[in-house]
Design a protein around this nucleic acid. Structure first.
Lengths: 121, 121
DNA sequence: CAGGATCCTGTCAGATACTG
DNA sequence: CAGTATCTGACAGGATCCTG
C-alpha cells in the first residue's frame, strides 16, 4: 500500500527527517531570529529570549553542520563571531512564515478551546 | 524596542505558543495522518509508525484539549473510537504541507552538507 | 566575547501489566 | 479495542565555573 513516493506515514521520509531536525524548542526560533541578517552570538542570545548559552551554542552547531547557517570568526580582540543564514536556511523562512501567520491568526482560538475543555473535564 | 505587534523575539507571542504546542515529535505527524479523514485509534497507531500507545493517547488528548481534534466514542462491543480533525485542525494542514514540500525538495541537500561538515571537522 | 567542560535535574518516552 | 497505571532509563536542558 504505497500512496505517494514519500508518504509521511513512512518512517524514513523527508518530512520525518525534517521534523527530527527542526522539531525542537530552539531551532526554528534561531532561524527566524537570523532572518534580518547576520547576527553575533550575544545578539542572538538576546533576541531568542530564555535560551541558555549552552543550547544556543549547541543548536547553532547543528544548524551549521546541516548547512542552514554559516559561522564566521573575526580574529579580533575581543573575538567576534557572526552567524548568517545560507541560501538553504533562507529558503526555510517561507514555510516558517506561513506557520507564523497561522499562529497569529489562530492561537487565540486554541486558548478558548483549552478553557472549554477545562470546564467539561 | 517593539518591532511588530507580535514579534517572535518576544517570549510570549503566538509563534512561541504554537511551537510549544506542536513542537514535539508526534503532534504534527498525527495531524497529517488525520488528513484523509476520521481514523480509529489502531489505524492511527499503524499509520504513525513507531509511536507507542502511550504517546498516541497522550498526544491525542492534548490535540483534543486544544480543539484540533474531536474524539467520538461509539459505545459498541468492542468499543470503537474515532478521531477527526476540526476546522481549526484542518486549517493547520496548509502551513504543514508547505513544510512538507520544503522537506521533499531540500532534505537531500541537508544530508550533503552533513557529509561535508563531517569531512572538514 | 564566545564558548568549553562539568554537574545536576526534570521531563520525555518506552516497556509492561492490567481494565471496561 | 482502546485505553489506564506504574516503573524505569535516557537525555534535553539549565546553572555554574573556566578559558583563548
Amino acid at each position: 500500500m504505497s500512496l505517494r513516493p514519500w508518504d509521511p506515514y513512512e518512517q524514513d521520509c523527508p518530512s520525518r527527517r525534517l521534523l527530527d531536525r527542526i522539531g525542537d524548542r530552539w531551532t526554528v526560533l534561531i532561524v527566524v531570529a537570523l532572518d534580518p541578517g547576520p547576527q553575533r552570538f550575544s545578539a542572538l542570545a538576546a533576541r531568542v529570549g530564555g535560551i541558555s548559552q549552552k543550547m544556543l551554542t549547541q543548536t547553532l552547531r547543528s544548524l551549521e553542520r546541516d548547512g542552514f547557517v554559516t559561522r564566521t570568526l573575526y580574529p579580533e580582540i575581543p573575538p567576534r563571531v557572526e552567524y548568517e543564514l545560507t541560501t538553504l536556511g533562507r529558503s526555510l523562512l517561507g514555510p516558517l512564515r506561513a506557520l507564523e501567520e497561522w499562529a497569529v491568526e489562530n492561537m487565540s482560538e486554541v486558548v478558548v478551546h483549552q478553557g472549554e475543555y477545562q470546564a467539561t473535564h
